[in-house]
């Protein structure tokens, strides 16, 4: 009987302060800054009648922005899925000069404000820019086109693709590969059958996280794109344009569509990770 019983006043306050006080702050903060805003959007959407919601959500301009946003974000995610795998592979398996620098700079898109990214990408990829100048003779224009949207989305989603695969690759035992090799499997066979399967959940998670981030991206895209409907106007920019015209219903409906799709992607990511844990624990 050395410790005081939990029913003593000290034990009671201990419980309140250790468990309940942070608990209360957590819920108060979430309610004020997260639940209330989300509720405002969803309830505003519910005040519109279904026919009107459908009309706004399927308006040709709105549909074209979904196309541009989701398709371009998907392409960016897939490109980074491949590039991210190669980058992670190179960073984990090889030694070369400048490796640490490369490893550190992968996170630049997390650290660099998106407005800066949009500004510098639009300069470099413009027709008289360092890289855009090379592409111009081939008739390829990047800045102020959909390709510009793609470049900005690739920039913004790159770290996700690398950082989800890298730790899994690090933990992957080289022994299984060596065993496959020594038994005469070719490099391709080793890659497809031994290395890739356990990496797949991580790769898909990285692609999905990058996609999700790219879909919501505003800052870098609005600067590099021309923001012309049916060409390179993305959904988040459409929301801002609608708000500027005081079209709250229009902004709300497009915002709700984006919110619901983000939630669906989030669910998909969780399912992928749960599957990955089950199979590769």
């Amino acid at each position: 009987m050395t410790s005081s019983p939990p029913s003593s006043p000290q034990g009671f306050w201990h419980h309140v302060l250790q468990a309940s006080w942070p608990w209360r702050v957590t819920w108060l903060y979430l309610t004020l800054f997260l639940f209330l805003p989300i509720a405002a959007l969803l309830l505003k959407a519910l005040t519109l009648n279904p026919a009107e919601i459908w009309r706004i959500a399927t308006d040709p301009v709105a549909i074209s922005t979904y196309n541009v946003t989701f398709f371009t974000a998907l392409v960016a995610g897939i490109i980074n899925g491949f590039a991210g795998l190669i980058i992670a592979w190179v960073l984990v398996r090889y030694e070369f000069p400048g490796k640490r620098f490369l490893d550190a700079i992968i996170d630049l898109p997390f650290a660099l404000p998106t407005a800066v990214a949009g500004l510098t990408l639009s300069t470099i990829y413009s027709t008289n820019g360092w890289i855009g100048g090379f592409l111009e003779p081939f008739g390829i224009k990047v800045s102020f086109t959909r390709l510009g949207v793609l470049v900005a989305m690739i920039f913004i989603s790159l770290p996700f693709a690398v950082r989800t695969v890298q730790p899994v690759l690090q933990d992957l035992e080289a022994e299984a590969e060596e065993a496959a090799w020594s038994m005469g499997a070719s490099q391709w066979q080793t890659f497809w059958r031994v290395i890739l399967p356990p990496l797949m959940p991580a790769i898909l998670t990285g692609v999905a996280m990058g996609f999700s981030r790219a879909v919501g991206e505003y800052g870098s895209v609005v600067i590099i794109a021309g923001n012309i409907p049916f060409q390179d106007l993305i959904a988040p920019v459409l929301i801002i344009q609608r708000l500027e015209q005081f079209d709250y219903a229009g902004a709300t409906v497009v915002g709700t569509v984006l919110l619901l799709i983000s939630l669906a992607v989030l669910l998909a990511i969780n399912l992928i990770q749960a599957r990955g844990r089950r199979f590769y624990g």
Partner: peptide, 20 residues
Amino acid sequence: IIDLPFSISPVVAGLMLVLL
């Protein structure tokens, strides 16, 4: 839920505040 803001477009977040 705590991670949710990372999945929501910042523009949609701003819109929510305007609606509030």
